[in-house]
């Protein structure tokens, strides 16, 4: 009887794992199968020509550039906002602090708010201030969207720093700020994971940029110009009745996936190098 139970739950676990891994490969396979035929140099080197969405020549370079600008800008801005928060939570506040608990709870709630809500909230503000959709508006909105991801991930990294390490810094006469800097060094691989997660979410998000970043056929030339993004490019192309244009949507998805993949691998490699500098924790 015990053996049967063991078998049953083990099978369940294996099935669940297979389901997830299977879906991952299923997605990759679909994108490759449908996207590869439409993939060509034009896709990544050209911006859309006139009538592109009806099947004319061109590519999605505008959206590739827009997405990269947006995700990089949003990640950088979010990091600038998150790092001080996490330092404050972990070095200045005691663990039992009420403010700390409220802050962490707020970020958990914010984490669960759908990105369309961020989008509409930012859009309302933009209307109020009379701004048009722009790269900057997109960056700010997406940064707000990814700050909770970053804070929570970095918070974990800081919390896993051994207490003895901050004690060591304190006993050398370090102030709180100086100790916080030591912890940043110690948590550097966690910070990097946080930035990566945030970047992945930023570059893949559609709803938050739909109203705020706008769309256009050109590479954004300034923070004030509208910024086309890959997810929206995919959406527009996929809604076309023409099969050739739909195929380009899959090719665009392939590009997006490839960017995310390259960045995660690069970051892993970088992380390994940084890891060597780290104290075991």
């Amino acid at each position: 009887m015990k053996k049967l139970e063991e078998q049953f739950f083990k099978t369940l676990m294996i099935l669940a794992t297979l389901l997830i891994v299977g879906s991952f490969f299923g997605i990759i396979f679909t994108i490759l199968k449908k996207g590869l035929p439409a993939m060509n140099m034009d896709m990544i080197t050209q911006i859309p020509q006139g009538g592109y969405y009806q099947g004319s020549k061109g590519g999605v370079l505008n959206a590739i550039a827009g997405s990269l600008f947006l995700a990089l800008g949003a990640s950088a801005l979010a990091l600038a906002a998150s790092l001080p928060i996490v330092m404050y939570l972990n070095v200045y506040l005691k663990k039992s602090s009420v403010l700390g608990r409220i802050t962490r709870l707020s970020f958990d709630v914010l984490f669960g708010i759908p990105s369309i809500v961020y989008g509409t909230f930012a859009f309302t503000l933009m209307i109020y201030f009379g701004n048009k959709a722009s790269l900057l508006a997109g960056i700010i909105t997406v940064a707000a969207l990814v700050v909770p991801v970053m804070v929570r991930t970095m918070d974990e990294a800081f919390r896993s720093c051994p207490k003895e390490l901050s004690d060591a810094a304190y006993s050398l006469g370090a102030t709180r700020w100086e100790t916080a800097k030591v912890l940043v060094l110690q948590a550097v691989s966690g910070i990097q994971t946080a930035v990566l997660l945030a970047f992945g979410r930023a570059i893949g998000d559609t709803a938050a940029v739909m109203f705020t970043a706008g769309f256009g056929d050109h590479i954004p030339s300034s923070l004030a110009s509208p910024a086309p993004t890959l997810p929206l490019a995919i959406f527009f192309q996929l809604s076309s009745p023409s099969e050739a244009v739909q195929a380009r949507a899959y090719a665009s998805a392939l590009i997006l996936t490839f960017i995310v993949l390259v960045i995660s691998i690069a970051s892993r490699l970088l992380g390994k190098r940084l890891q060597k500098n780290k104290t075991r924790s």
């Binding site: 051994p162 003895e164 390490l165 004690d167 050398l172 006469g173 550097v188 780290k278 104290t279």
Partner: peptide
Amino acid sequence: RKKMGLLSQRPFPLPL
């Protein structure tokens, strides 16, 4: 604290 050096149970070198 500057007047005292502390050695803990396990060594914790700074990440430097």
